[in-house]
Simulated assay, not measured.
Amino acid sequence: MKNFIVFDLEWNQNPGGKEASVERLPFEIFEIGAVKLNEEREKVAEFHRIIRPCVYRQMHRIISEVTHVSIEELERDGEPFAAVMEDFLKWCGEDCIFCTWGSMDLTELQRNMVYHGMTIPFPKPFLFYDVQKLYSLCYQDGKARISLDEAVESFALDVDAPFHRALGDAEYTGRVLQTMDFDSVKDYVSVDYYLPPESEDEEFTLQFPEYTKFVSRMFETKEEAMEEKRVTDIICTKCRRMLRKKIRWFSSGQRYYLCLATCPEHGMMKGKIRMKKSEDGRVFAVKTVKPVDEEGAEAVFLKKEEARIRRAEKSRQKKLHGVE
C-alpha cells in the first residue's frame, strides 16, 4: 500500500545575506513536520522534530519574525540533522510518494543530506506531488500559484495551528490534498531536479494528458546539449512519430529554446527546451512538447521574429561601436 508523505520544512539562512552564506548550504533546515496519509488520503500518522543548527548560529531576522523561533529554542530542543533524517526516512517507509507545497523542499532536503554526508536513497527520476501546482490545475489556470493560507481559506478549512511552522503547514497541505479534486489531477506528478540524469540510460520521458516532458543527461554547455539529437527531436505526443520541424529551434531568452513541428495526423506541436543548471555547474535540458492551435503556432512565429530583431539590433550595435 502506497502512502502519501505530506511534509514541510523550515530553514534558516545567513543573516548577513547571500554573499556570506556557505555555498553548499544556503538554507539550513531547523524543523521538519509531516503527516502520513493512506491510499484513501486519510491521515494515519504524523512526524515532528526540531534540528539543532550547526552552520548558521544566528536567526535571520525575517525568518525569526515569520516562524517565531529563536536560536535558543533550537539549541535547547534540537537534535542532530542526520539522526532526525534517519528517523524520518524510517517513519516514511519504503512505499510512499512525497507531497509538498511548492517545489523547493525536496531539493533543500537533499542538499542538507549531502552536506551532512548522508547517502540520498531516493529513486531516479524522483517524482512527487506539488500540491500547490495541483491546486492551480484544479481551480486556476495551471500557472498561477497561491499561498497555502489562501488555499486553506478557499476551502474554509479549520485553522487550529500556526502557519509557517513545519507540522502546521504539513497538516494544512494534507487537508488541501484531502479536500481538492485529486483524482482529476493525479497524473500530473512533478520531478525533483537535484540529481539530474548522469547518463543516456538515466534520461527519461514523462507522458502527461496534454504534453510530454523529456529530461536529458548533463552536458558541459547548453550548446553541447543542443547538438544532441535526443534533446532536439520532436515526437508527436499522441502517435509518437518523429516530426519534421516547421520552425527550427531558436533561442528565446538566455535559457529557453522554442520550435514548431507538424504531425500529419495530429496537427502542430510546440517544443520548448529549458536549460537548467546542476549542482556542479553543468547543464541539462528539460524539453516539453504539446499540441498547439493556430493561435499558439502564431505566437511561436512572433517569438522567432522578436528573436531575429534582437539579434539584428545586437549585431548593429556591435558594428556601431566597432566590436568584432
Rank of each mutant, 00 (worst) to 15 (best):
A312Q: 07
K319P: 06
R308C: 11
E305N: 14
K287V: 03
D293P: 02
R311W: 04
R308T: 05
A307Q: 06
F301Y: 13
K314G: 12
V289A: 07
T288F: 05
D293W: 02
F301E: 10
E306N: 15
R311H: 02
V292W: 03
K304W: 06
K290T: 04
I309M: 14
K314R: 12
G296W: 00
D293V: 02
T288K: 01
A307S: 14
A307P: 05
E298D: 11
F301M: 10
K290N: 04
K303P: 00
V286P: 13
K303G: 09
R316M: 15
L302S: 14
R311G: 00
E295D: 09
E306F: 13
E294W: 12
G296Y: 03
E305H: 10
K303H: 10
L302P: 09
A297Y: 10
A285M: 04
K319Q: 10
R316K: 14
E305A: 12
R310P: 00
R311N: 04
K287N: 01
L302E: 15
P291C: 03
E294T: 05
K290R: 01
E295W: 02
V286L: 11
E295R: 08
L302H: 15
R308N: 11
V300P: 07
R316C: 14
V289I: 15
A299I: 02
I309S: 08
K303Q: 13
E313D: 09
Q317H: 08
E295A: 10
A307E: 07
E295I: 08
V289Q: 06
V300Q: 03
D293N: 13
K314T: 05
A299D: 12
K314F: 10
R310V: 04
E305K: 12
P291M: 07
T288L: 01
R308Q: 12
E294S: 11
D293K: 03
P291R: 01
K290Q: 09
E294Y: 07
R311T: 01
T288Y: 01
L302W: 11
K287W: 03
K304L: 11
E298W: 06
V286G: 06
A307D: 00
F301A: 00
K287E: 02
A312C: 02
R308I: 09
I309Y: 13
Q317R: 15
V286F: 11
A312D: 08
K318V: 00
V292Q: 01
I309Q: 14
A299T: 06
F301I: 03
R311E: 11
R308H: 09
A312K: 07
Q317A: 15
D293G: 15
I309D: 13
K318H: 08
A299C: 05
E294Q: 12
A312H: 03
F301H: 11
P291N: 01
P291Q: 00
K319D: 05
K319L: 09
S315W: 08
E295T: 14
K290F: 10
K314L: 05
P291I: 00
T288R: 03
D293M: 04
D293Y: 00
T288E: 14
V289E: 13
L302C: 08
E295K: 11
S315H: 02
A285Y: 02
R316S: 14
K303L: 11
S315E: 15
E298K: 07
G296C: 04
V300A: 04
K303R: 10
E298T: 03
K287C: 08
E306G: 04
A285Q: 05
A307T: 07
R311A: 08
G296H: 05
V300W: 07
R311P: 00
K319M: 13
V300G: 05
L302K: 15
A285P: 06
R311K: 07
K287R: 14
F301V: 09
